[in-house]
Design a protein around this nucleic acid. Structure first.
Lengths: 195, 195, 195, 195
DNA sequence: TATGAATGAGAGTTCATTCAT
DNA sequence: GATGAATGAACTCTCATTCAT
């Protein structure tokens, strides 16, 4: 009798190590030079050859998505809990947006997530839509049901607005991104003007 | 024999012509390919050599600023009139924002205006601050005096938020920039949540 | 305890299997993508790792030679028979050339056999010279003895000419390699012009 | 009255100089490393940057064609004269082939001219067909009319056969390309065997 | 003054070969 | 013995900017 313990042999030690090194390096480099950083810079930071980077992440899209996957997941998973533990749905929404802003806050150039696939952001774009939109949608629904939210804004629309606001963050002492996001969220409480 | 009548002689005819041709070309190209368009594309569109472009506008910053100067002026000048002709200061603010959004609407990649001088946007940045911030400031003050605006948002803060929202516009049928801006403006009517 | 019965123990079953798989794969791949095909393609076709390929055939030269060894042998062995069964030595020569052309016909890029070892063809080159030149030499001698061949062309010279003609075959509907070879062989029947 | 001396202003001195330097360099490098040599090698040999090479010759095809244009022209132009000055059409053919072989003789890797456009030889291929085929065709026709040539070989077919024979020339003391070509041409004098 | 050719660094990507597992 | 991940040099091509004409 044959007992296939595991179809896929466990990954080699060094492969896993490199993979992690690449993710760490990419995170560092992306934070430093923006998401458009050169592949060489990332590989160099990780201490591996460029081809190794290509082996692990065939397209830039894959790398970008991989780098942010964990954080996207955390964001997505936090939604229901916040809804349960907050005083009101609107409070939950605010709390979740805070989380999302914290996540995006340190990344440069992440606004380009929204540009179709022009720059290799398709995978991350999809992750955002697939994981985050439903979560935010639930929060908005709850807020609407409670009468706290009246603006007819879709989850995607709001997510993207926040994203655009936060993602191109540049160090400007006279500008407070979080205040802008707060303004935006605050706008949900009433009918917005026609523009 | 040459007699320099004047220290700053009026510019030669062809120089002026080239200058205008370059501005027109840049406007066209920026609208088509974004502000990051290649210098060759602009020079080619204007029908002049690249070096001519460099002579007229030593840095990209200068070119970008020159291209948008007129429109920035128009925006700035429209402020007082709107305040006078609108039913309420808030209405005037909304109307002015509409103008501003219209202005930014057709440019691609203008978000970079806010990135210090990283991509040569310093001059435009300064124009925005010098001409537009005071105008928007007046509008906000009026709204506040009328009790219509309560959020403690500075003119610069608001300008930049709108800019970030509008400028990275990519053709996404599921996203409506103006709706996001409306949300933001609507948020001015009450105290925003702490974030 | 290990008792080495034999200095050269017969190869392990799987080793032999891999060897054959590699040869088959190489034949397939060479026919499809040319002799310059990537090592990964060959290894992949064989279903083994690249390093296995390198173990079996340390240099590309070895692989190429091994792949064509059988066919070279067949060609070599057919010579005497043709001489015996053909009406005239010249007919035998033509028949043998046909065989040789058939052999080369399906391989791409085999002209490089003649480039010293630049691309790893030394081993195959040697096989050609050692096995085929004598056979062709006999055919030429017979033809000469019968008075059918008068051009002072050596076997190596002729072999190589045919090889160059046939081997760089590219799919060109306006070109018929066999016709060129026929022309060449036909030239043997008289003194060629000085060139 | 306007007298347009020349619509296109005469090329700048340095441009012409660079152009020539590039052609010379390419000729040198092609002779040394083959036609597949890297663009950097050519640019380096010419003492210019790679981009300069790209400006002058946008595709490899253009460079290759330019390098050999003069010689192709000479070959083409020599045809009629040879026909007039030779004792017989066949002698003229032989003389012309000699010229052609001289031309191809020093180039490495020129066999690839015949590979469709796979490697950037399209332009040269076209030159060969357009300029040389008609010339060779006339020679063959004359030979046929004189009864000296009987093989039903087209000019293109013959040109290509010679090309394949000559072009992959590698330094092999035991092999004489010219002898092979002589054999081929000699074959034209009678019906070739079926192959 | 206007031109566009020259520059050279840097981008992404591929591949034969080696080496740790 | 077999594996396939890692390597790093090589490739083509592009661009903002400078400089000779």
């Amino acid at each position: 009798m044959t007992v296939p313990v595991n179809d896929a042999p466990r990954p080699r030690r060094d492969v896993a190590r490199n993979n992690q090194a690449l993710l760490d390096a990419a995170a560092t480099v992306f934070a430093r030079s923006g998401v458009g950083a050169s592949v060489r810079e990332v590989a160099g930071e990780a201490g591996v050859g460029v081809a190794t980077l290509y082996r692990h992440f065939p397209s830039r899209s894959d790398l970008v998505a991989a780098v942010y996957r964990h954080q996207v997941e955390e964001c997505a998973e936090a939604g229901p809990g916040l809804l349960a533990s907050s005083a009101t749905p609107y409070d939950a929404l605010v709390a979740w947006v805070r989380l999302f802003v914290d996540f995006l806050g340190t990344k440069h150039g992440l606004a380009r997530v929204w540009e179709g696939d022009s720059a290799g952001f398709t995978a991350l774009h999809r992750m955002f839509v697939e994981r985050l939109v439903p979560v935010l949608s639930d929060l908005l629904d709850a807020g609407r049901e409670a009468g706290q939210i009246v603006a007819p804004t879709s989850a995607y629309q709001l997510l993207r607005a926040i994203g655009d606001l936060v993602a191109w963050t540049s160090p400007d002492p006279d500008y407070d991104v979080r205040a802008s996001v707060a303004l935006l969220v605050s706008g949900l409480r009433q009918r917005p003007p026609a523009l």
